[in-house]
Structures are given as structure tokens and as C-alpha cells.
Design a binder for these strands. Sequence first.
DNA 1: CTGAAAGCGCTAACAT
DNA 2: ATGTTAGCGCTTTCAG
Lengths: 334, 334
Amino acid sequence: MNITIKDVARELGVSYSSISRALNGKEGVSKATRKKILEAAERMGYQPNDLARGLVNRISKTVGVIIPDINNPFFGEIVAGIIDASNENEYNIFLCVSGWNPALEKEYFNTLLKKRVDGIILKSAGKNEDYDNVKSPLMIIERYSKYHEFDSVEVDNELGGYLAVNHLLDCGYEHLAFILGKEDFFASQRRLKGARKALEDRGMTLNEDMVIEGSFSIEGGRQAAKQLFERGKPIDAVFGMNDLIGMGVLQYCNESDISVPDQVGVIGYDNISYAGLPQIRLTTIHQPKYELGKMLFETLLDEIKNKDNAKPTKKIILNPELKIRKTTRSGMHP
Amino acid sequence: MNITIKDVARELGVSYSSISRALNGKEGVSKATRKKILEAAERMGYQPNDLARGLVNRISKTVGVIIPDINNPFFGEIVAGIIDASNENEYNIFLCVSGWNPALEKEYFNTLLKKRVDGIILKSAGKNEDYDNVKSPLMIIERYSKYHEFDSVEVDNELGGYLAVNHLLDCGYEHLAFILGKEDFFASQRRLKGARKALEDRGMTLNEDMVIEGSFSIEGGRQAAKQLFERGKPIDAVFGMNDLIGMGVLQYCNESDISVPDQVGVIGYDNISYAGLPQIRLTTIHQPKYELGKMLFETLLDEIKNKDNAKPTKKIILNPELKIRKTTRSGMHP
DNA sequence: CTGAAAGCGCTAACAT
DNA sequence: ATGTTAGCGCTTTCAG
């Protein structure tokens, strides 16, 4: 069916070990025969079988990626970075989408193991201790472990939260509300921690009543905003823990004739492409998503290559950036 | 390193063909030993090696997908459909992103062949005759071939174009302009054909001067609109061949104080998630992208399973739908 | 420099 | 019902 190394060998009357050597650019073949082999392979349309190769080399040049949602542009951009980096290193990506379902995620994980991927990049939908003693190279996007036993790449969530609230305060907003994303408890908590710190740095304190949990979607944000504002307590700024939530808040404000940014300021998180649209222009915290994806892959590859020789684990932290747009007041100290 | 079938066999003192039989649920093993084997495998943490399996079965349970751009939500939704369908059938997806680069696309294609994928789904960035005599199961998204030698799934572009222009005319717009996407010449042409037909059905004719080519992006749409309007000829409606272009037109109109939909009507194509945002509400032609992805995979799988026994090729055509929002006038015959 | 042979982990005849 | 064996396509000793 498919042309194999043996077919080429037979055609040329050489042993197939020579073919292998020639094809892989190893020494031990004369210039002449190497040339002959390469030509014949080309002419016959020979395509090496990576399955067989992988079986003997124990390297599949393949990594698995599991994300919760591909239509969330946040993950889309991370994946774009991963794919580009993998391409540069002649790797291919198995993309799996868990739909925030831990059981499906687990299933995917096992399938990837069976496929003998060289490593896995995972954004877990659940608590990620499940993966604490996996032996294959593994990068968990935002793995929260007590000990730093694993390599990691992350964007500083605490700093992001700090920047967001600091900006809100700079704008003169005083009654801050916070909408967490229940899908990612840890990230939301970290951001909230930064928020708290920004408040405290000015001698203020975070009002715990004003922290509610929503879901990472536009509708989730809208609902949460509704809930928040209908309590009747004073609110003049909302920090949504992702842009989708922020956009939902915007939507609620629009429906309820609350003027943004005058009456209420809104800030999101992530800086997904939507947020920058001229009709939206949501102030937000930019996360370097594409770069994160690239570094995730590169760090994983590093791990793969140094599987045995124990190297010190590393922790790479990327910085988020404040992106001021039009949903927060511009004047300072009004 | 990894536990193999042999390890389990040794542990239990059975031959390893029995293990294989038990694990694959084939007959020829007594209930008792089957149970024993399954337990031992579980206990020892045995994970079958799909590379080896694929080598002997000549089936990798893997398909490759090549798309031009993952951050275009249009492709994102198609991929979501493909991934869901593949999961339901216990397949995994190699996702490749060509960046509209035909050379990279070709490279990816070859890599997938080496990885021995069972089939490939491809949205080609170039003219797709390159793939006319590929022997592996292949689904090209919008393959334009003179003969229907291949299975295909597509959304009716001509109908989509017709619906769009028909609606514009219903709204009372008279001076129509068209912005094509140069990345996808064929699709744009088909849609234009439908547009022409809608005009002719009312005894009107399409003004070829009013057809220009842009690029499938917001900025591309903005530029094209600029070019169009600066010619000074009367234009009261623009049909952008995708939503990104439509949004670019919206942006231009906003910057130039052209009121939409009163002065100028704008219609896009695809109905990507952006288009439905409350701040945008772009009238557009909906393409069932997720369903397209699902059917693409399912049709491919069908092809894979019936590789040899020649079945008649099939052509599945999905219908697009007009989605009226706020960028076109509502009143008919004003 | 080249060939023969073993083996990667698994399945599928073919025996027993 | 179970075991033995060959072989999938390739890489890699080990001889020559």
C-alpha cells in the first residue's frame, strides 16, 4: 500500500539499514550511495512512517494540548502561540477540548498517553492535584501547587489584579465591586488578592460584600451585574475577572441606562480581541496570551529533552499590562 | 519504562496474545482469565501503545486538520465541530495552522501523511488542485473541482449571496457595493454570483465598478470601504463577503459620520460571534459553522471506513440563513 | 562502508 | 481456550 524502506532497498539492491542511515543523515554511507538513495526515495514518493519511528525511538514528535473552550478567544490565542512554537520545532499538536468537564478532560489525558505524546499542555477544568504524580512531561497552565516541583509559565495574576484596582482608584472610583469567574477559582482569587493589596496600599479595605461569583461569559457577566446593582448599595466601578464578564457588565449598564464610564467604570481582564473593537473599547488587563503559548511549548520541549538528567525546575512569570480604553474615566482625582 | 503487554503476561503467566484478546474484547478467552487480565492491567497501570497498534492495524484513529487561521472565529467554530465529532468517534485531531501560507500548508500536509493520519480536513489557502490526486481520505472545505469526484460538505454560497442582496433590495437600498475577500476567491465569486442573480430577478443589473477586493479582516474592510466611498459615486449599501469586512465597513462609516443603517446599509457574511454583540449587531448571512465541522468529520470518517469498497461520492450542501440585525433598515419598500 | 539481525509493542493467523 | 510465531516499518547494534 504505502512505500516502505524495504521497497526502496529492493529497488536499489542495497540493504535497508543503509537506506535508514541515508535518510536520517547519519554517517556510514558513501556519498555516492547516499545520493542514489535520496533520489530513489524522492522518485518513488517514499514517506517515512512516523508510527514505526516513534515505536523504536520512543519519541513521537507530538504533544497534546487540552483546553476547556476553543471559542473563547483567550484560549484561541494561547493555542495559536503553542502551534506556532511547535511548528518551529517540527512538532505536531493534538488539540483536545474539554468543555470545562473534568471527566472528559481526564479521558482526553489518558488517550494522549496512549498516543504516546512526548508531553502535554493542560488547562485544567478541575483541581489539578489529579496530575501531581504524572511521569510524562506536563505543563499545567496555572498549576497551583504548594511546592514548586514543576516547571511553569504563568502571567502574574496578583499583579494584574493590583493594576486593575489601582487604575480604578486613580480614576476616582470609590465603591468597587468584583465579579469572579467560577470556572477558574484560583486565578480569580489571585487577582482578588492583588486587588485587595491595591486598596490597602491606599489605606482602604475591600468590601467582601461586593465580591460575587459569576461565570466566564457575557451572559454570566450580565447576570452578575444585575444581581449586584439590584441590591441597591452604591457601586461606581466593576472589576470583571475576564473580558467576557466585563462585556456582560457593559451590556447590563446599557440596558439599565447606567452611563459608562461616568456613572460606573468597568474593567475586564485578558484583553481578548473583542475588547479592542471600536464599539467596545473595554479597559482591561492585557495578558500576553500568544507569548504565553509559545513559552509553554518551549518550556515543555525543554522538559522533554531533559527528561532524565534532572535539571532544576524553573518558574517563568510573564507580566500583565494595564490597557486603558474608554470604559473607565480618564481624569485622575476628579 | 512503560508497562507493556508482555509485562502483564509475565506477571500472570499467560501468553501475551491472550492479553491482547482480553484487552480488545475479542473472543477466545475464558471469562475467568479475561477478568484476571483486566484486573492485572488496571492494577499495573497498563496503557496500550497506540503507535504499535497503529503500525499493525494501519489505523491511527487520528485525523489532521489544516486551517488558515485559528483566531478567526469562523474557523474556530468549524474546528469546535470537528473536535466534538472526532471525540464522539474516539478520534484525535492534529490541528495545523497555515497562516494562509500555501507552502506551510503543503509542509503540514506531508507531515500529517508521515504521521499516518487516517484522513485530512483541509481549508486550503491556495488553489486546491494540488490535492487532486491524493490517495488518502481528504475533505477540502470548499473544494472547487470540475467533476464531482470527491465527497464534500459545503454551505451554499450562491444562496447566501442571493439572500444578502435580496434583503438589501427589500430594505430599499439601490446603490449596492461589494467587497470581496482576496483570501478566498472562489467563495467570494460564488456569493457574488448569487448577488447578481438577486439583482437580475428584479430586472436590475450588478454594477461591476462597485465590486472591489479587500482582505478578510476588519482593517481590510475599513480600507476597502474608504476606497469605495472616496470615489464619490453613490453608494447606499455594502455587502462585505465576511463579517470582519462588514465590521470594517461599520468602522469606516462611524469615522466618517455616515449613519448606518439610514444612509448606508451594511451586511456581512458568516455570522461569527462578534457580529451578534449588542454593540455591533451586524446583519449577516449565517453559516452553520459548528454543524459544518461535525459533518466534515463524519463524512471523512465515512470515507475512511469505506476506503476500498467504492461507494458513490456524496455532496452535502448546508443552507445559510439571513440574520437581520440593526445595520440594515427594517422597513420594506420605504 | 555495508549487510544481517534483533527488537520496539502489538495483532492475527496458525497451531495445539 | 490458550500459546507460538510472524510481521507491521523502522533504527540500531554487531559483524564483515
